[in-house]
Structures are given as structure tokens and as C-alpha cells.
């Protein structure tokens, strides 16, 4: 039963996101360098972090599936990766808008985090084609889990190597200033936004799992009624 606890969870994520966006526009101070455009940071960075976290979560459930062979873990892994791909689209879109506003170009290659994210996104974009190119359901689950494990390990490696490739870092490095220059009020706002985005991810994850579970049960019921 994936639907259990969905109601309080949805209320909490809506509340956290509304609270976060209210903090973004009415509480967090204007950035000294970038001014108002820096407000994208509170959307873009939580989206990216939650998407990457979702990819790694997919890998963790992939390992669990390989160890247990249970269909449930495969579904959890699949939905986590599927949702992360959607959040990844949002991350790339908001990142491009931010790049256009700050640097005047829709895409900048000397920007390691954006480039690494694109590579990871391209890899995961192959997840569904791979999955649905395999007919046998057991093999489909197993191969998808293997892909999820490989991808989960690839995420940190890719970020490392791309970051090394650029000596000059030009990203609006707001996060790097944590502890250093970033004011506490900005950091607090960011944390609330991150919490809201995480809650949203978990809510949608359970929502979709519940829907998939319902469809699977319905199909089983139909088979039973038809054969009886």
C-alpha cells in the first residue's frame, strides 16, 4: 500500500514549497553581485540536487532488487529514475534561463556543473529505451537494476572529472560561499527550498508508485475474473 500517508505528505510538501517561495521573494536579501536574478538559485539548485539524489536512490533500489529479486524494489527504482529525469528537464531549463540572464548565452561550456549534469541526464535518458527494448519482464527488471547501479556510481565520477576539466570556475558559485560569504538568511531560505523539493519528490514518488500498484492489481484481478 503505497497510498498510505500520502495525504499528510502532500500537505507538507505544498506547505514547504509555498513557505520556501515566500521566503525567496519576501525574506531572502538581494544578492550583492547578481541582484534579483539570483532568485533562480533557490529553484535551480534544489531541483538539481533532488534529481541527482533521485538517480542515486534509483541505484540503491537497483541493488536491493538485485539482492532480493522483488518486483517492488524494481518499481521503486524505476519511478525514482523516471521522476528524476523530469526534474532533470526542469533543472536544465532553469539553468539555461539563469545562464542567459547572467552571461547572455543560453548555454555555457566552461560551466562544469551544468555540463556534468547534461552528461548524466543524457545517460539516464537511455534508461527507458533500454528498459523497453527488453521483452522478458524478469530480465527487464534485472537489466534495469544493473543500469541503475552503474548510473548511480557514474553520477559522482562524472561531476568530478568535469569539474577537474575546468580550471576557471565561473558558475554563480553561491553554494561555494556557504560558511564563507553566503548570508545565513540566504542559506536558511535555500534549506527550506531544498526540503520542500525533497518532500515534493517523495510525494510524487509515492503517488506514482500507488498508481502503478493499483494498475498491476487491477490487471491481476481482470485475469482472475476472466479465467474464473
Amino acid at each position: 500500500m503505497y497510498g498510505r500517508g500520502l495525504k499528510p505528505l502532500s500537505i507538507a510538501s505544498v506547505a514547504a514549497l509555498i513557505g520556501a517561495f515566500a521566503l525567496v521573494f519576501f525574506y531572502a536579501p538581494l544578492d550583492a553581485d547578481q541582484g534579483f536574478i539570483q532568485k533562480i538559485f533557490y529553484l535551480h539548485v534544489p531541483l538539481a540536487l533532488v534529481a541527482l539524489g533521485g538517480f542515486v536512490t534509483g541505484g540503491v533500489y537497483g541493488i536491493k532488487h538485485l539482492r532480493s529479486g522483488s518486483r517492488e524494489h524494481d518499481m521503486k527504482s524505476y519511478v525514482a529514475i523516471h521522476l528524476s529525469i523530469i526534474l532533470g528537464v526542469a533543472t536544465l531549463a532553469t539553468g539555461m534561463i539563469w545562464a542567459k540572464a547572467s552571461w547572455g548565452a543560453w548555454w555555457v561550456w566552461d560551466e562544469p556543473t551544468l555540463v556534468a549534469f547534461l552528461i548524466v541526464f543524457l545517460l539516464y535518458a537511455c534508461y527507458q529505451p533500454l528498459r523497453f527494448a527488453i521483452e522478458d519482464p524478469d530480465r527487464q527488471m534485472r537489466y534495469a537494476a544493473v543500469f541503475a547501479v552503474i548510473g548511480g556510481a557514474f553520477v559522482p565520477l562524472c561531476f568530478m572529472s568535469v569539474r577537474f576539466a575546468q580550471a576557471a570556475l565561473v558558475h554563480p558559485r553561491v553554494l561555494d560561499q556557504t560558511g564563507g560569504g553566503m548570508p545565513g538568511s540566504m542559506f536558511f531560505t535555500f534549506l527550506v527550498a531544498l526540503a520542500g523539493m525533497t518532500l515534493l519528490f517523495v510525494t510524487l514518488w509515492k503517488f506514482e508508485l500507488s498508481s502503478k500498484h493499483a494498475r498491476a492489481q487491477l490487471a491481476a484481478l481482470r485475469r482472475r475474473v476472466a479465467s474464473a
Partner: peptide
Amino acid sequence: MGPALPLDEAGAYVAAA
């Protein structure tokens, strides 16, 4: 990095995001 965009221009980008 250029100077900060004026509010009316930056606002459109933020709204778009």
C-alpha cells in the same frame, strides 16, 4: 560577470524559470 540586471529585466527571467 557583468553588472546585475535591472529588476524589470531580471524579473522576467526569474518568472520564466
